[in-house]
Amino acid sequence: MKQIITATVQNRSGVLNRITGMLNKRQFNIESITVGASEIEGISKMTIVVDVNDHQKLEQLTKQLNKQIDVLKVSDITDQAIVARELALIKVVGSGQLRAEIQGIIAPFRASIIDVSKDNLTIQVTGKQEKVDALITLLKPYGIKELARTGMVAFLRGQQPSHVTEINSALSI
């Protein structure tokens, strides 16, 4: 099952290495991991998408993350009301007539063409991962020359339908 974990971390040098190293050592299957600035200076936000198949492994993941000295807070937001987005850049073969066709395909996805050259064009799409996946599938027949995805960033929606459980080493037990 795919889990979405966010971690608030202190932006000390080596923190990303420490976390990815731990995930790797403990054999967690990372689908994507993103890190970037948060609203507070010196604090970064990580979004980790991970494939775990049992509850015990998931608990280990959050506990091991919490154990890191630079990690301030860990939340499993998989089952919460969240906003989650990913950005992808897709370079496809396309000139002349094909261009119009491609434009037609991407329009419902609200994707945009951000670069054009003689025989290819680059499309930018943002959205949920499924949406990005779907667009990539549709574009495949045209020949994808290059693809880069950012991985998911996510956090909770302002309004939660139900109670939010926060996973914190001190509180969960």
């Binding site: 015990q56 280990q60 506990k63 154990k67 080493s169 001190a170 969960s172 037990i173």
Partner: peptide, 11 residues
């Protein structure tokens, strides 16, 4: 004292 050790190997 290390929560990560609890439940790691044994339920």
């Amino acid at each position: 004292i290390d929560p990560a050790e609890i439940g790691k190997n044994v339920k």
